[in-house]
Design a binder for these strands. Structure first.
Lengths: 211, 211
DNA sequence: CCACTCGGAGAACGATCGTTCTTAGCTCTG
DNA sequence: CAGAGCTAAGAACGATCGTTCTCCGAGTGG
């Protein structure tokens, strides 16, 4: 008898999470009240509290869904490229992300700065998200014959590019990180890749469209 | 007639800023109220509002003083080392910073995540702070004969190490960033530096005491 | 000793926020 | 149609916070 209602609950949940993603990511968690979330999602406060018993629960759900989406978007971009360029494709994906209109840095780092010292669950989800990214990158690097240390170095470059791009308001750090990654990959790619030829010329500029 | 009083005002200001630094950095800006700032500093609310007409002014002063202190600490560590190792000394200093008990990441990034979308002054001070660090690093790199691109790459490594160390709760990212920096510096140091010999062995482990 | 000023402690105020409760309307059953 | 149960809309509540105000005691000049 409640078939239609259950579906409604799920679309309500999706709409709330959509609004949370846009508002929490775009303006911060503490500055966005439940009332604004209600009007943005069109879901009544009662339903909202049925779905998420407290704002903290909603924040956690927001972070977990963002983690899944972010990693899926990255993987769907990277995994369709030829195996030899997948590691560098990570930085191409970053460049495209940095250029999006609503880019405002890493939602997890922002949330961690805001609530990490107060909320253990925020700190934990953030840690998990970063570890998952590092492991994904390590898998790509290992598949290219690179060492775990190389993977850690590239992860630091990516991390630095994210925050630098957010603060500077420019996607350029992704290019710089990519150029540095080429240098670090040099010995790895050197065996049979033509990319290695420019490994001693750090200033590699490419047109935005090309990858 | 107010000689003693003026001096009091300055010590009061210092005590307020000390408390702000500890509380804002350690727990976040929004979670710390003016009342807690008063009891932590021992300065009455009245004086506090004479010194800083609003909480926003206090936040700005906190950030500006933290910027000056942070850069001075870094420079005082780096500039006393021999010229050839100054670039790497940046990462040694980071390692020591990450190991401090109250280390909680970059206070500017934390504050930017919390208030950057709301407060233009916070965004601006943060941008200025990061630019100053990048320029300082670029000066060190240029003095070693490195290119501006290399400086940008090393800045990304340092930035990534800061946030990674904060989230992981470990100082290790400084070591990894240092190892990556050695690889990137390889061509530069290669001319007359013995460090270049390990430039193809990324996994450089040193005992914590040594730098 | 007295009047006056000044600063500290904390109450008070207005706004906001997370959360709950009230109210009124709609739907579905008999 | 009657009434029960559900919902949306928004008022209400309690807590917190930034900011201001009140009161009172201490120190000072005459």
């Amino acid at each position: 008898m409640q078939g239609g209602r259950v579906l409604d609950l799920e679309t309500a949940r999706a709409r709330v999470l959509d609004a949370a993603d846009e508002l929490f990511y775009g303006r911060g968690v503490q500055v966005v009240g439940m009332d604004e979330l209600r009007s943005a999602s069109g879901v009544s406060l009662k339903r909202l509290y049925q779905l998420f018993p407290s704002k903290g629960d909603l924040v956690e759900a927001y972070l977990r869904r963002r983690d899944a989406r972010w990693r899926a978007a990255l993987a769907s971009y990277v995994d369709t490229r030829p195996a030899e360029v997948r590691v560098l494709a990570v930085f191409d994906w970053l460049y495209q992300w940095f250029g999006e209109d609503d880019f405002r840095g890493c939602g997890f780092i922002n949330c961690f700065g805001e609530l990490g010292s107060t909320s253990p669950v925020v700190a934990d989800v953030t840690r998990t998200h970063k570890e998952a990214f590092q492991e994904y990158l390590a898998g790509l690097v290992a598949a290219s014959g690179g060492s775990p240390e190389l993977a850690a170095h590239l992860a630091l470059l990516a991390e630095g590019a994210i925050t630098t791009a957010a603060i500077a308001g420019s996607p350029e750090p992704a290019r710089q990180a990519r150029a540095a990654a080429i240098l670090l990959l040099g010995p790895v790619l050197g065996c049979d890749q033509s990319v290695s030829r420019m490994s001693h010329r750090p200033c590699v500029r490419r047109r935005p469209g090309s990858l």
